[in-house]
Design a protein around this nucleic acid. Sequence first.
RNA 1: GAGAAUGUAGCUCAGUUGGUUAGAGCAUCGGUUUGUGGCACCGAGGGUCGUGGGUUCGAGUCCCAUCUUUCUCCCCA
Length: 459
Amino acid sequence: MKQKPTLPRGTRDYTPAMMLRRNYIISHIKEVFEKFGFLPLETPAMENLSVLMGKYGEEGDQLLYKILNQGDFLKNVQPEDLKKGSKLFALQIAEKGLRYDLTVPFARFVVMNQHDLAFPFKRYQIQPVWRGDAPQKGRYREFYQCDADVVGTNSLICEAEIILMMNEVLGKRLGIQGFEIKINHRKILAGIAEKIGAEGKENELCVAIDKLDKIGKEKVEQELLQRGFSENNIQALQPIFDVPANNEAKIQFLEDFLQNSAVGSEGIADLKQIFEYLQLFDSQTSFPVVVDITLARGLSYYTGAIFEVKVKNSAVGSISGGGRYDNLTGTFGLQGMAGVGFSFGLDRIYDVLEEQNLFPAQTQSTTQMLFTNFDKESEKFVLPLLKKLRDAGYKAEIYPQSTKLDKQFKYADKKQIPFVLVAGSEEMKNNEISVKNMQTGEQKRIKIENLQTFFQEQL
RNA sequence: GAGAAUGUAGCUCAGUUGGUUAGAGCAUCGGUUUGUGGCACCGAGGGUCGUGGGUUCGAGUCCCAUCUUUCUCCCCA
């Protein structure tokens, strides 16, 4: 009868201790998004499969969680339907699925509400997504994405603002050390492909070049050969393997290298414009932005600038990323809706903050004071005080039953509540209460009329 | 989809060439302290050893199957 409770594979509970820390991160992200004019949006956990299917490639369709139809889902099924194979049959008995990312539901939303929205439309969205992938270290079947997108504009001010937001959240607010905002441009990659005589093969080029810092030049060349690039292509690619490190020099180099390529030059012009906007926004700060031509990003719908944030000397991978796309809503029949978006990797940011020991102490607990409970008499004495302190804005609680003080103190200790208030017959007689500071162990008798001023000084 | 491990108390794990009633630490509860946490000491509860089959006088230990979880590759956040 007794069965062990379990969790579906690849999912986890977020304990109160974790939630306090996650909320700390999320609150900064939200504040910054809103400061830049992004508004919150939430969409349902489930979408119609017709919305989700075919948007993530064949593999993506496989990883979609499908929801069995309500009621008698076999009602209209014939025995021969089973012969169609499980993929097709699944679609006959499931018409809904769990969202796989936030971008496609967002595109769906934009199309459905196109006549009511104020364009350029800016929204942020922080919600879980589900993927039926094999879980691994740092990879889950349910995880959160924090996306912000602007649609309906080509302005590169948006790109510059993305850099500002990344810098403000990760650097200024959360205090992460040694992070780098890498930037590249799909058109530069296309230009390179064109220049080396492998026009139109920039996707393959991207996939291989993306691994440069992981597997090294030799292996990348091997992979390029395997992917159908010629020795000549690879020969022409050589200068790319030792571009200058400095941003300006790198842009200068690329400008020369790509001067005959129209697309390539467009990409360079965009990057220059983005840097110019950054200058205008703030000429004092030097943002940790690095032009990195090995940055490709897997997502095929990116068409302009692409971003990725990495922390140097950390095992945690990229903690933020994004890019510009030309045609977000095309598959839903709304053409020419260009935009740019990015997202923060909540779980990875969490790991980095833990690694760099950056969570403030107050993210350990929220209750500021605990009233102990002796008996009915002390309840009478203490409840009005509790109400007053709460009205004054303090987070306060009472141990709801009377048990041994020992137990009540252990409770406070475990919840890391900084103050414990004790009122027994001794104190009540003198209209006082004993206040114990749990960190120092110091205990004082305070007149109840002085309680609030006492806490004003202490907290 | 390919490969490699793993499973014993709530948690982390020990358990010898197969041999009585399967152990430890942490956690929980009780006591030393009927009004005071962290520290210490004493004590208690808690396990059909993942599941099914097989070998054996005897299986946590050996064999087969199955499931679970974890890791690597692929891909991704």
